[in-house]
Each structure stands twice: as C-alpha cells, then as structure tokens.
C-alpha cells in the first residue's frame, strides 16, 4: 500500500469495523461476517470493472448498490442453507451488515477505480480486527458477563484502535 492511499484506506477500514460491531459477540460470528463481507466486497468490485469508464459517472453508485445487494442476497441464502446457527444468532443483521459494509467502504475510499488489490488489503485488515474484537469478547465474556453486553464492543474497540494507532501511526493528529 502506498502512503497516498493510506489515510483513505484507514478511514474506510474504520467505518467497516464500526459497522461490523454486531457480529463481534464471538469469534465464530466475527470470522464468518468478516469473510462474507470481504467476499461481497471483492466480487462487487470485480464486476464493477465491467462498467468502469463506460457508464456515466453519476450512475456508477447505483450500479454498485444493485450489485452489492445482489451478492448480499446470494450470500444470505448461502448462510441460510449451510450456516443455520449463524443465521439463528444474527438473523436479518447478516444482509444489513454485508450490504452496509460494502457501501460504506466504497464511499470512504471515494474513488471510482475499484482497485482489487486495495480491497484485498482492506479486507484482510477488516477480518483481523473484527476477529480480534471477537476473541477478546469471547474470552473475557466467559469471566465477566458485562463484556458480552453490547456496550463492551465500543470500549474494547476504542482501546484496540488506540493501541493500534499508537503502534502504527506515530504522527497521528486526527483519525
């Protein structure tokens, strides 16, 4: 990743993580939503290459939304067929999360290039951090039930992000 794109990527990654909070009650849900969202992102961006430079700029977003919704529906059907326990846990949040994560990433990347490499790097970061939150909540949740309550996701992520930015982003001014 070159440094020019770094800031945009970080913002998009942050937005995606904040959207994915619902799925972080356990490692299993975090991993499955992380993977599924990445698949939606990658396939949607791949298909978008068919329209790039051809369709009018103003319509690209609409195409992106339709394609995302389409891949999301397919993924949700696959979840319903093969991963019933995750559907039992997350229910309608699955399509909501997959759809919103894909859209929000595209908005904050704010480019109409649909670079697959970029999306791939972003997806890996997304899965890792989401699973990180999932692991922490699952491990601590066994001891302190308050960790399993929704608010803990905010606080754990807050500290996790602070630690990450303390390590990687030395000259940080604003997020």
């Amino acid at each position: 990743m070159n440094s020019y794109n770094n800031k945009k990527n970080n913002t998009a990654l942050l937005a995606a993580i904040c959207t994915g909070f619902v799925a972080t009650t356990s490692l299993k849900t975090a991993l499955s939503i992380g993977l599924a969202a990445s698949i939606v992102l990658i396939i949607t961006n791949l298909i978008m290459h068919l329209f790039i430079n051809k369709a009018p700029n103003s319509m690209l977003m609409l195409f992106y939304i339709i394609l995302t919704a389409f891949i999301t529906s397919i993924m949700y059907l696959i979840f319903q067929a093969y991963f019933p326990d995750i559907v039992n846990e997350l229910g309608i949040y699955i399509p909501v999360l997959l759809f919103t994560i894909s859209i929000i990433v595209q908005i904050f990347l704010h480019e109409k290039k649909y670079s697959i490499l970029n999306i791939l790097a972003l997806s890996i970061g997304f899965i890792l951090i989401l699973c990180g939150i999932g692991i922490i909540r699952e491990l601590l949740g066994g001891k302190y039930t308050a960790i399993l309550e929704a608010p803990a996701a905010f606080i754990i992520t807050g500290f996790l992000l602070a630690i990450l930015s303390g390590i990687f982003d030395k000259d940080k001014k604003t997020a």
Binding site: A55, F63, I66, F70, I74, L77, A81, Y82
Partner: peptide, 27 residues
C-alpha cells in the same frame, strides 16, 4: 445506461431466484 441498469436488475433477480430455487430445500 438506464436500460442496462434495468436489465442488470432483472438478471440479478433471476440469478437470485435460481440460487434460491437450488437452496430452497436446504433452507
């Protein structure tokens, strides 16, 4: 491109329908 969009929506819906048909029993 509006026409293409409409066609795209129809195609997406049909594919989703086919996938649903294939997975219906399992669901």
């Amino acid at each position: 491109w509006t026409l293409i969009l409409v066609v795209l929506i129809v195609i997406c819906s049909i594919i989703t329908g086919v996938v649903y048909g294939a997975l219906e029993d399992k669901i």
